[in-house]
């Protein structure tokens, strides 16, 4: 009994932290989103309302921005998966070099997120590194900066480790004898991967998708720097309402709508995770609007 009590006491400091800095602010945001002391649904209605009579739903300005955010985040997540899975697989499989490869891979994470994103400015700008490089081979210069493409590049670059690491962890910890059993029963390398390795790595993929998609859909720094402000995402909208316009009510309403949407999409993703729960591989992502 005393042990149980002690264990509970250990939870209190974090519990307090959780309440003051996460639960309470969330409640305040919800409270603001409903108009604070004067209860109203106006701020929600404003988000969905048309500019003119009969404007198609998805062309309404805030809806369109939200859709763009989701679209870019989905593209970034897909690219991260396509690049990240083979990398995680190689890291987990060819373990003799893994420590060095993994080290190389993690080094950029030691640098500040803003600095890393600023670096892409110099790479992508008109007279930047990329165009200088293309020029050496006589190739035409590109004009990537301040486009959707630049924002996607920024997201993929910054979020790729969060796709790779959970998949790598699941693959690395996979019981090798399960793979051997599949070979033993007549499966060739492709069959082993499709029938055993990939299905068993799905929890890692879900964590990775979550950890890329969530910061991707809420980012405002990457779109500010690399999108040049003209390609506005929902994160930028919320930022503007709080920091420039000063309309906390509308900003809160948008934040709540975004949260509900993310929760809904996470729920959808979880449907793919039909693994028997053994509590081992489910490394749930902790993410959010960090960037």
């Amino acid at each position: 009994m005393r042990v149980a009590l002690l264990k509970r006491i250990f939870v209190y400091p974090y519990g307090l932290w959780l309440f003051i800095f996460i639960v309470a602010p969330l409640l305040i945001i919800v409270w603001f989103s409903f108009g604070g002391t004067d209860f109203t649904l106006y701020h929600y209605a404003r988000f969905f309302s048309p500019l003119y009579e009969g404007q198609p739903f998805f062309q309404r300005i805030y809806i369109a921005v939200l859709m763009r955010s989701i679209y870019l985040a989905v593209i970034s997540t897909v690219i991260c998966f396509v690049l990240g899975y083979p990398l995680a697989y190689a890291l987990a499989k060819f373990y003799s070099h893994k420590s060095f490869l993994l080290f190389l891979f993690l080094v950029p994470l030691w640098m500040n997120f803003l600095l890393r994103t600023y670096a892409w400015l110099t790479i992508l700008e008109q007279n930047g590194v990329l165009n200088a490089f293309l020029g050496v081979f006589g190739l035409p210069a590109t004009d990537l900066l301040f486009t959707d493409m630049a924002v996607v590049i920024g997201m993929v670059y910054n979020f790729l480790p969060f796709m790779v690491l959970p998949i790598y962890t699941v693959l690395r910890d996979m019981d090798k004898s399960i793979v051997e059993a599949a070979q033993d029963l007549g499966a060739n390398k492709v069959q082993v991967f499709l029938k055993i390795v990939f299905p068993l790595s799905v929890p890692g993929v879900i964590s990775g998708v979550t950890m890329v998609f969530m910061p991707g859909v809420t980012t405002f720094v990457i779109s500010n720097l690399l999108g040049g402000g003209q390609f506005i995402l929902v994160g930028n909208l919320i930022e503007q309402q709080f920091l420039r316009v000063g309309d906390w009510y509308f900003g809160s309403a948008m934040a709540v709508i975004l949260m509900v949407l993310i929760l809904f999409m996470m729920g959808l993703i979880k449907l793919f995770d039909r693994q028997p729960k053994d509590g081992r591989t489910d490394k749930t992502a902790e993410g959010g609007a960090l960037y």
Binding site: D175, S177, E180, A181, Q183, D184, A187, L200
Partner: peptide, 28 residues
């Protein structure tokens, strides 16, 4: 190994956790 007419019973069973009993046995 997948072409040898030899099968193995592993020390820690090595059942496929993503399949039920039938699909485990039916694998080959």
């Amino acid at each position: 190994p997948h072409k040898r007419k030899v099968n193995t019973v592993f020390q820690k069973y090595a059942l496929f956790p993503n399949m039920n009993v039938r699909d485990n046995i039916a694998f080959s």
